[in-house]
């Protein structure tokens, strides 16, 4: 029984690391970043590329990979999202082109990864991080599993507090409601967008590196499957809500583990879709979501 609990915690933590950034950029900037799965993968791939250049510990590789994946999303913002936003008649009109452009970027990243890995699965070197089993409060968990949980909860709480308390966080709430009014108040949408995008990418990259150590494999399409899960999490938690995304991530993970245990492995990926459809039928705005002005 405790084994299932540990599984759900690790799975939920991966979902949380993946989804928080996706939800944030959607809720605040109106960017549905469909390349988020590729960014997750890019984090893991960059860790592989860094370690193949020389043996380095995870404590060095992880920040470096987060920098790479965050930097990639910043690049997307500069090359694609910002020009589209500038050209659009209003913020709403920019949303669809930006989502489509993100598919284009994702396509480039996947093609690069596919060529680099030659279509095979790779695994990160063992000497970067040695996986072993540890015991915490009577629960048996691998050390990488524990690290995933700590990182997910730590980073989510830190980000949640930052957005709720800090000056920049409050500025984010303003542009989430109306970027024009934000501009009148002297809030630079462009600068905040860069910061938000960087955080979103870095979190996904962190998840990608830790996940590829956890399952001991990585490949070009590893992020695609997570997109479906992330959508379910966002639907549960509400668009743009950090706390909602965190709660939704663990709810989905628990539901999936429960479905696997009670019905069978085949049910795992269906849970997310059923959750999306049922919640959207009953409450199109999301389970925990509030009105737009209450968001973020």
């Amino acid at each position: 029984m405790s084994g299932y609990f540990v599984d759900a915690m690790i799975l939920g933590s991966i979902y949380a690391l993946f989804t928080v950034g996706l939800s944030l950029s959607w809720g605040i900037l109106g960017v549905l970043n469909l390349a988020h799965g590729s960014i997750f993968m890019a984090g893991a791939l960059s860790a592989y590329m860094i370690t193949s250049a020389g043996a380095l510990p995870l404590a060095v590789v992880l920040p470096a990979s987060m920098l790479v994946s965050g930097g990639l999303v910043v690049l997307m913002e500069l090359v694609a999202f910002r020009p589209i936003r500038r050209r659009a008649a209003n913020p709403l009109a920019a949303e669809l082109p930006m989502a489509i452009a993100s598919v284009g970027v994702s396509s480039v990243l996947v093609a690069f990864a596919n060529n680099f890995t030659a279509g095979y699965s790779l695994s990160l070197p063992q000497d970067m991080f040695t996986v072993s089993s540890i015991n915490i409060l009577g629960l048996t968990i691998t050390n990488i599993g524990a690290l995933i949980v700590v990182f997910a909860i730590g980073l989510t709480v830190a980000l949640g507090l930052y957005v709720a308390r800090s000056r920049q966080g409050r500025a984010l709430k303003v542009i989430a409601q109306d970027s024009y009014v934000g501009g009148l108040l002297g809030i630079s949408m462009n600068r905040l967008a860069l910061g938000t995008m960087f955080i979103s990418g870095a979190l996904a990259g962190c998840g990608g590196v830790l996940f590829s150590i956890h399952v001991n494999s990585m490949h070009a399409y590893m992020g695609e499957a997570l997109l479906l899960k992330a959508f379910a999490v966002i639907v549960v938690g509400g668009i743009g809500s950090i706390w909602g995304a965190a709660i939704g991530a663990y709810v989905l993970a628990a539901a999936e583990v429960l479905a696997v245990v009670s019905v069978g492995v085949g049910m795992r990926d269906v849970v997310a879709f059923v959750l999306i459809i049922v919640i959207l039928l009953a409450r199109p705005q999301g389970l925990l979501s509030k009105r737009k002005w209450q968001r973020s």
């Binding site: 549905l32 709403l92 695609e224 479906l228 959508f231 990926d269 879709f273 459809i277 199109p284």
Partner: peptide
């Protein structure tokens, strides 16, 4: 009928979820 209840990006999200689910079904 389901999708028109949603707006903008949420609608996009549902259609992508639909394709991703089909992918899982086909492979399994």
């Amino acid at each position: 009928l389901l999708a028109v209840r949603l707006s903008g990006l949420s609608l996009t999200m549902v259609t992508i979820a639909f394709v991703l689910l089909l992918q899982v079904i086909v492979l399994n």
